[in-house]
Computed example of a mutant assay.
Amino acid sequence: MLFAPDTEEALEFAVVLANTEPGASRSGTDELATVAHLEELLRHNTFTGRIDRDEAEVREVRKARAQIREVWTLGRDEAVEVVNRMLREARALPYLTRHDDSDWHMHATEPDAPLAERIRVEAALALIDVIRMNEMGRLRVCAADDCTGLFVDLSRNGSKRFCTVRCGNRMNMVAFRARKAET
């Protein structure tokens, strides 16, 4: 295991959130444009605590999405600045908790804090582990020519290159056709 289970879960949620952006989403559109989109995201990715279900919350979650996408592409030292700012702005105070089916894990905001703030802080806590373990290279942008999807490489050897099997297959087919055209 590379990271603690709650760290992996937070990183995976950050990826799902970041990949709702146009250009990274499966549909090619903003998959976080409406309250209904946010509800769909949360239906498949459980987030405990306060959820307002209004346009203001959607706007704030989109800002959190942009901040998470930014950190994904930064070097280790630059990421530290952004992660510290995310925690400072939320006045994060880490504490251990367990709820639902989750064993002891860390939160750093109260359950009634705004959703976007909780998302940013959960991502920041996970990113702290990534930074401390010097594993920023595990946070990647898809290697497919026409994709800006993000992913976290949790494989043992850290050799994953594409955000989805679909992107990998598409690029393999492009390479195959190019080789075939040469002969």
Rank of each mutant, 00 (worst) to 15 (best):
I128Q: 12
D129N: 10
M106I: 15
H99C: 09
M106V: 15
R140G: 01
I131R: 04
G137S: 06
E122A: 15
D112I: 10
A143T: 12
P94W: 07
H107N: 04
D101S: 10
T109R: 03
H105N: 05
A92H: 02
R138A: 09
A126V: 00
L139T: 10
P114W: 03
A113E: 12
W104I: 14
P114I: 04
R132Y: 01
H99R: 12
E122N: 15
L96M: 11
H99W: 11
H107C: 04
L115M: 09
P111I: 10
I119L: 08
D103R: 14
L127H: 09
M136C: 09
A124I: 09
R120E: 13
D145A: 13
L96Y: 09
D145F: 04
R132S: 12
H105A: 06
P111C: 08
L125T: 05
A123N: 07
D146H: 12
H99F: 11
E122T: 08
D100V: 11
I119A: 01
P111N: 07
I128N: 10
V130A: 09
L139S: 08
E122Y: 03
R98N: 14
D100M: 06
R138E: 10
I131P: 03
E122F: 03
L127N: 08
A144W: 03
V121C: 07
A126F: 04
S102A: 15
D100K: 07
A113R: 12
Y95P: 00
A92P: 02
R140Q: 15
H107Y: 03
T97C: 04
V141R: 13
A143Q: 12
L93K: 13
R118P: 01
A126W: 04
Y95V: 02
D100L: 14
L115R: 02
A143W: 05
V141E: 09
Y95A: 12
A126C: 04
T97S: 01
H105K: 07
A143D: 15
C142V: 03
R120M: 09
E135R: 14
E110R: 14
L139V: 12
I119R: 01
S102R: 15
M136V: 11
T97R: 06
L125S: 05
D112V: 10
